[in-house]
Design a protein around this nucleic acid. Structure first.
Lengths: 174, 174
DNA sequence: TCATTTTATTTCACCAGTGAAATATGCACC
DNA sequence: GGTGCATATTTCACTGGTGAAATAAAATGA
């Protein structure tokens, strides 16, 4: 089922709810559409990776190492850049090691730490893979003017800012 | 860690990648920000539900039934409105039945089908729960003008349209 | 009518993320 | 120099989504 059909159904559904409980604002539609888009976007990102038996988390991890000086970093630091949970990193790194795209070993300076390093094969993979994703990315923003892109960017960051403020407040007060 | 910090780290990370591979466009940041927002938005939605031992999927299902004539529908139809996979519906319905919020039984007209019906307790739950989520939703769009909301809506739908077009094309051609 | 196809739901095995707790090391302060 | 706190990684049990296949009941049509 296509995303546009899902959105149509969602619109209908929300219209029904708002008829039953009129104080529900139209903004819930905005939220739901973002969730649907994100879901589909994630699927789109994984589309190219699947044939190579990698998922998006693993790819992000690989890219984080790629973009790092010496191609080395530690699990905790990689998680900062990728927004992945540290507890997932063990499994993700295992998978990448098994695929020969990174190596992993104990750190010399701090024996609590582990250093992950991208291998030459890993670098080649990123350098081949990343550009091959760009045409579809271009299509994704097809018809967007420069202005629209920057407006979208601004509005999303504004929303993110509000979300961050919400994180501070417990939220079950009144 | 707050969403705004995650976004800051993500921005840094992408800047690093773009320095290494300059043909990577800034649009990847737009994509990642949407994914981060969606993730956080989902968490926000589930925040209120968690004390009641429901997750968002279960709540959406309940609402779909609530908004339906007679409060009855079938798993397949509910999935249309909620964008949930049919295979999840069995588990979700099981949970809602156990909580006494819906009933489930065989259909009289078509014995392949199952009818799900919201119970009075389920209706009460929705009527109490939904309005209690509105204050935080209001905060979420705090500072957004009417115009900004509709622009965001328009741009997201435009993006969704492009995503739908991508779904048609296989995508691994050149 | 009876064989084929379509539709609806369920089951199952698998993948991926999460929080809490375990483990191990480093660091600071007395 | 040992005690207690902080940091880094891992393990584990649990939750939730997915696709493929099983099951069962219509619908189609020769």
């Amino acid at each position: 089922m296509f995303l546009s059909d899902k959105i149509k159904c969602m619109d209908e559904g929300i219209a029904g709810v708002r008829k039953a409980i009129p104080e529900v604002p139209a903004d819930v539609g905005l939220c739901r559409i973002m969730l649907l888009i994100a879901e589909r976007l994630q699927a789109e990102l994984e589309h190219k990776l699947r044939p190579h038996k990698l998922n998006d988390s693993e790819f992000r991890t690989l890219i984080a190492l790629f973009a790092h000086p010496n191609g080395t970093s530690t699990p905790g630091e990689v998680c900062l850049f990728t927004s992945l949970g540290v507890t997932n990193m063990t499994r993700i790194a295992n998978a990448l090691v098994k695929r020969g795209l990174i190596t992993r070993g104990p750190s010399a300076e701090d024996r609590r730490r582990v250093v992950m390093q991208i291998t030459p094969a890993g670098k080649r993979f990123v350098q081949k893979m990343l550009p091959s994703m760009l045409p579809r990315l271009k299509l994704l923003f097809d018809g967007f003017t420069h202005n629209e892109r920057s407006t979208l960017n601004r509005l999303l960051r504004k929303l993110a800012h509000n979300l961050s403020k919400l994180e501070h407040t417990a939220g079950d007060s009144p």
